Amino acid sequence: MKKAVFLDRDGVINEVLTDRVKFVNRPDQLYFLPDVAEAIHQLNKVFDHVFVVTNQGGVGLGFMKETQLQRIHDHMMDELKKERAVIEEVAYCPHKPKAGCKCRKPNSKLIEDLAGKYKVELSSSYMVGDTDTDIIAGKKAGTKTVFIGENDPLADAVFPDLLSAAEWIIEDSK
């Protein structure tokens, strides 16, 4: 079985709710957080897969169409590839926040579906996020969890940014 790292997008890979951008609704609104490409590149060396799993309720709420979201994700993946950082696939929930769907985090369907598709052993894998919903989804799926931010009592580890989280994940996975 393979091992993977599942990354939330907004707040882990790119800015959200900052002075520059509130929400990412177009490719030109995607601003990478510092050292994200380096962190993903380091994870690529150790893990079979790096995925993004993200709630994108802006689609369901009508702020963007799925084709726009796909352009954002294509842009993100292309820009990261230029830095030798590879995201294998992006799985997203396009539904409204309170739609009651099974794919929206804190549910674990996005993680579990990718794990099934790529034959990933979830107990050897990690979910990295910046909200409780990310951590709960990872726990439900059976991954170890890493919180990006100041504090989360549910997470297995807490770091201020993806690069420091990646260093810990790589060491912990040995």
Rank of each mutant, 00 (worst) to 15 (best):
129 G>R: 02
95 H>L: 11
99 A>T: 06
98 K>I: 09
128 V>N: 01
114 L>T: 06
113 D>E: 15
74 D>V: 10
95 H>V: 11
89 E>M: 03
115 A>R: 03
92 Y>F: 13
108 S>H: 01
109 K>M: 15
100 G>Q: 13
126 Y>T: 06
91 A>Y: 15
85 A>M: 07
95 H>G: 08
86 V>R: 09
118 Y>P: 03
109 K>A: 15
130 D>A: 04
102 K>S: 11
83 E>D: 10
91 A>P: 01
90 V>F: 03
76 M>E: 09
96 K>V: 13
103 C>T: 13
114 L>N: 07
102 K>N: 10
93 C>E: 07
87 I>Y: 11
112 E>G: 02
100 G>S: 11
105 K>C: 07
115 A>M: 08
89 E>N: 00
74 D>T: 13
112 E>V: 10
89 E>S: 00
103 C>F: 13
112 E>A: 05
89 E>A: 01
108 S>D: 05
115 A>G: 09
102 K>C: 04
107 N>R: 10
128 V>E: 02
112 E>L: 13
116 G>H: 12
100 G>D: 14
96 K>S: 13
111 I>F: 08
85 A>N: 02
82 K>F: 09
93 C>F: 07
94 P>V: 10
93 C>Q: 06
119 K>C: 02
98 K>R: 13
75 H>D: 15
79 E>Q: 15
93 C>N: 07
120 V>P: 03
91 A>V: 09
101 C>D: 08
107 N>Y: 11
130 D>L: 05
124 S>N: 15
81 K>N: 14
119 K>Q: 11
94 P>Y: 12
89 E>L: 02
130 D>C: 05
97 P>G: 09
90 V>D: 01
117 K>M: 04
80 L>G: 01
88 E>F: 04
110 L>Q: 03
110 L>H: 03
90 V>K: 00
102 K>P: 00
87 I>L: 14
90 V>P: 00
94 P>D: 12
90 V>G: 00
108 S>Q: 01
108 S>E: 02
97 P>T: 13
79 E>N: 13
89 E>K: 04
88 E>T: 12
85 A>D: 06
75 H>V: 07
76 M>Q: 09
113 D>P: 00
122 L>F: 01
107 N>Q: 14
76 M>H: 08
